[in-house]
Design a binder for these strands. Structure first.
Length: 98
DNA sequence: CAACACAAAGTAG
DNA sequence: CTACTTTGTGTTG
């Protein structure tokens, strides 16, 4: 997580991206958060799509646990990482979040 | 500077 | 349960 913060400080990002990536990195293991919660955490309660937009291009793909971010109803949603949503669900199961 | 795209959520039927 | 509309930010032209 500390590694993510260092990268956020180094990387050229907008304030929104920093907050979103940081908030995502702060999600406790074995727990999931909705895009809505992430958006609310960065004071953009209606920017849940923007959060996904940032995650999609995620410059820290393996550094930020974006797989812990799920839809409001608990669905996995999409995942641009390796294995896609399938791997995402698998990771959540291993962490005890699902 | 303007238009397009998105990993969602909300509301309606 | 399924379908359509809405919304904010990033990226690309």
């Amino acid at each position: 997580m500390r590694d993510a913060r260092r990268l956020l400080n180094e990387y050229k990002l907008t304030d929104f991206q920093r907050q979103v990536l940081l908030a995502t990195a702060k999600i406790p293991k074995g727990e999931t958060r909705t895009y809505k919660q992430i958006a609310a955490a960065v004071h953009r309660p209606n920017a849940y799509r923007a959060v996904g937009s940032v995650m999609r291009m995620n410059p820290f793909a393996p550094t930020i646990p974006c797989h812990r971010v799920v839809k409001s109803d608990g669905s996995i949603g999409h995942y641009s990482g390796r294995g896609g949503s399938k791997a995402k669900e698998n990771m959540l199961r291993r962490e005890g979040a699902l």
